[in-house]
Design a protein around this nucleic acid. Sequence first.
DNA 1: TTGTTTATTGAACACCGTTCAATAACTTTG
DNA 2: CAAAGTTATTGAACGGTGTTCAATAAACAA
Lengths: 202, 202
Amino acid sequence: MGIIERKQSEREKMHKLILDSARKIFLKNGYEQTSMRNIATDINYSPGSIYFHFKDKGEIFKELHREGFQLLLGKLKVLDNVADPFERLKAVGRVFIQFAQENKDYYNLMFIVDDPGKESEGAGFKIAQEAIGHLLNIVKACQQKGRFKDMDAEYFTFMMLSAMHGICALFCKDRTASFVGKTNEQLMDHGYECFVALLEKA
Amino acid sequence: MGIIERKQSEREKMHKLILDSARKIFLKNGYEQTSMRNIATDINYSPGSIYFHFKDKGEIFKELHREGFQLLLGKLKVLDNVADPFERLKAVGRVFIQFAQENKDYYNLMFIVDDPGKESEGAGFKIAQEAIGHLLNIVKACQQKGRFKDMDAEYFTFMMLSAMHGICALFCKDRTASFVGKTNEQLMDHGYECFVALLEKA
DNA sequence: TTGTTTATTGAACACCGTTCAATAACTTTG
DNA sequence: CAAAGTTATTGAACGGTGTTCAATAAACAA
């Protein structure tokens, strides 16, 4: 019976329609500045209708949150081809920062905006953990090649992530204005190269 | 005529009353989760009255934002006694992170919550710039003693700040759950020591 | 006492996320 | 085909938000 399948596909179409509009508006105006009515108006639907397809605003957030991580992970996966683990580590940082530059709003959603749902739960948490595990493995591979031998791998990974996130977070919140005469991109790129210079001496 | 002075002092008293209540509620529930009506109720005033003393919610934010920076700067100033610039630099980071741990909500207000007012403007911006200039000077002093000689002082400062902020931002947003079996404080403290270890080798 | 400035009020406006009874559209059953 | 049932959609309504503003009270100056 192809009827329930058609029903299903129509529900999926509606799901996608809402999500596409939400993505567009979320990434333009930010999560807080986007209302359910904005989305509803955009797709010519009633506000209440969205709640038939999504439990609440946080549910839409979660889906976009996951999207963002998949996008980032996809870009990081390419680096598996880089044979030397230290080169891979440095490249991860560069790709991470580039991702933030090119997807400022996804980045906000993923790392900065308050998680409306409960933390440490759901697919979003799992995928974040996957990303961290990935980074941790690279660090350990570096150590097996003799780098960062005297460091705890987990704390070192956390520190790496913090440094990269710090750069991106200041960028996303435009807290870079105090460095006059330098563009955001200059600060981020050269700032990261400073960090890499430290790594290279360790 | 002491009358206009009394008037003035009463206006200041009211200003303080609102600010005290706002601080209490902001730092407990967060900026977004605090309403003008919450504040008004707390001090037994009408919602509209607040607008006689503050332009809008963002104006209150700005004042607390400034407070936070003054608190932080006060703690950093103590470190002027540390003679060796590199020791001073390392201590700045430790104090910064400690500040975030002890004043999570101020930290949020200062570095994470969206600035409701226009950026790069007003006293808050000036004080932030002062803090950065302070850090920059320490970095330059380190360079004069032979450290970080091959680095650009400004980019290096930005990188330092990013690393510290990254640690604190992950903490403030509880994005640390993916590191199982470690407390926030452990991650922050040991993570920072990892970073210091890098600095020491440079 | 009258006029003027200053401070306070609370209703009102336009928005928000969310709920829900009503309803329309479509599918299944009798 | 008609009745019953399921599914999707609606828009009003609820309680909340930041903010404005005419009315008002209080304190001062003339």
